[in-house]
Design a protein around this nucleic acid. Structure first.
Length: 436
RNA sequence: GCCCCGGUAGUAUAGUCCGGUUAGUAUACGGGCCUGUCGAGCCCGGGACCCGGGUUCAAAUCCCGGCCGGGGCGCCA
């Protein structure tokens, strides 16, 4: 036998003055309860937003009144009543209660303030993440994230990319260097993938253009507001393009995402108090050398060949607001698979996408010649033999190709104006947090 | 990995320098009053000094160790 389920007639945000007189049924959570004695107000919250339910006690029979007196914060309730256009209500409308059922009772007192009357630190927020996410401004972040993901997939399909899924469990490091999480894999050792890099390069020989959106893992000791152990990367790789081609794809993607978010998430942006200006393309492009010179004029020396430190980036970020590219980094500061420039192998066909001082994406033209790739592996002190499976793909017809990886969580930080990456991840993982 | 900072009711905080009333306030919770609240209001109540050691007549306060956390750097998305 199937259970009888409660049914709603409207979502909270659909309760508008023009429904005046209509009988409605709502489902949701008691976001706030205010009892003034003879009259009581419940702010009912569902996924769409909130609406005010007004209870005039003298009009109700005893059995309804008993249920009404028992409502607490975050109880799940079913409410029947009629809509009344009401200038005295802040939203201009209310639902006058006729009947109510408490479908699920919440702990009293609830251990975390969902209404936002008392602010909480990030650690407390994450300890009570489910309750924290019930705050409208916090779940707004993830509604925007949903739009971002949908917009990205839509954009990639319009540009002939195929969505792929590469392994999260891998046998060896893909890029050397970066710390990997070790996992027990039956009787042997395996690692969690830190990037889809080598797989996506191999896949361009099949699908020409591929993209992947998924989690990757870095066992770094990082302790900052922009690093976590598990993050979401948006990766692409495309055959027959060089760095310039994929930079254009990247800036067009960013613009497409902005347009969609502005179009579809007006309410959420307002909750977050964010005003988004759609960036103009092309984004400014500067070379590594130009940036080194610029730093020099600002009195900040950098040894040529060194990557920018946070101090350098913060200074550059003060001058360069918004999105911009830095291109042609020294080859030695980049991973082995990046293509050195033909006219000057000290420089590489690489780029980073920046937003002010924050690194959002990095990419470039990849090496498509096997012997050069082997040479670069050796120069970086990596074990060529461990890459045999990857290297032999280059014997079967490897086109020129390029790609990038974009930190989705960092992009969300910018779109939602949050300053801690943990705020834009539902259940973040870092060195000090493995639960909830 | 290195460096800085912090830990007081469920939550957010005052008090800590300069040791000494009953550890204050807000919110949440319980009780009471209240028919237009939307940060509701008023009255009453219960609720806390991270753990261990030391100094002292006396420690939330000073010292040492531990645990937990926030942030910065390096590294990167």
């Amino acid at each position: 036998m199937r259970r009888k389920l409660p049914r709603r007639s409207h979502y909270a945000s659909e309760i508008k003055p023009n429904l005046d007189g209509c009988k409605v049924a709502l489902l949701g959570w008691a976001h706030e309860v205010r009892d003034l004695g003879g009259i009581k107000f419940i702010l009912l919250r569902d996924v769409s937003g909130t609406c005010q339910v007004t209870i005039k006690k003298e009009d109700l029979p005893r059995e309804v009144l008993e249920k009404v007196e028992d409502i607490g914060y975050e109880d799940v309730v079913y409410v029947e009543g009629f809509v009344k256009s009401q200038p005295k209500a802040r939203l201009g409308v209310e639902v006058v209660l006729e009947n109510i059922e408490i479908l699920s009772r919440a702990l009293r007192p609830i251990p975390y303030d969902v209404t936002g009357k008392v602010s909480a630190g990030i650690d407390t927020r994450l300890d009570h993440r489910i309750l924290d996410l019930r705050k409208p401004e916090n779940n707004a972040i993830f509604k925007i994230a949903d739009t971002v993901l949908t917009a990205a997939r839509e954009f990639f399909r319009m540009n002939n990319f195929i969505e792929v899924r590469t392994p999260r469990i891998i046998a060896t490091a893909t890029e050397g260097g970066a710390a990997l999480f070790e996992v027990k894999y039956f009787d042997s050792k395996a690692y969690l993938a830190q990037s889809p890099q080598l797989y996506k390069e191999e896949l361009v020989t099949v699908f020409e253009r591929v993209f992947e959106i998924g989690p990757f893992f870095r066992a770094e000791e990082s302790h900052t507001r922009r690093h976590v152990s598990e993050f979401t990367s948006v990766d692409i790789e495309a055959a027959f393009l060089d760095l310039y081609g994929v930079m254009e794809i990247l800036e067009n993607l960013i613009v497409h995402i902005y347009k969609k978010v502005v179009e579809e998430r007006e309410k959420e942006l307002e909750l977050l108090n964010v005003k988004l200006d759609i960036p103009e393309t092309p984004f400014p492009r500067y070379t590594y050398n130009e940036m080194v010179e610029e730093l020099k004029t600002l009195g900040l020396e950098l040894e040529w060949g060194e990557d920018f430190g946070t101090e350098h980036l913060r200074i550059l970020g003060e001058k360069h607001r918004g999105y911009y590219f830095i291109t042609h980094f020294p080859t030695k500061s980049k991973p082995f698979y990046i293509q050195p420039c033909e006219d000057n192998p000290e420089l590489s066909e690489s780029f980073d996408l920046m937003y002010s001082w924050l690194e959002l994406a990095s990419g470039g033209t990849r090496i498509s010649n096997r012997s050069l790739l082997e040479k670069r592996l050796m120069e970086q002190g990596l074990n060529v033999k461990a890459f045999e499976h990857h290297l032999k793909v280059y014997d079967y017809g490897m086109p020129i190709h390029a790609g990038w990886g974009l930190g989705l969580d960092r992009l969300l930080m910018i779109l939602t104006n949050r300053e801690n990456i943990r705020e834009v991840i539902l259940f973040p993982r870092d060195k000090f947090r493995l639960v909830p």
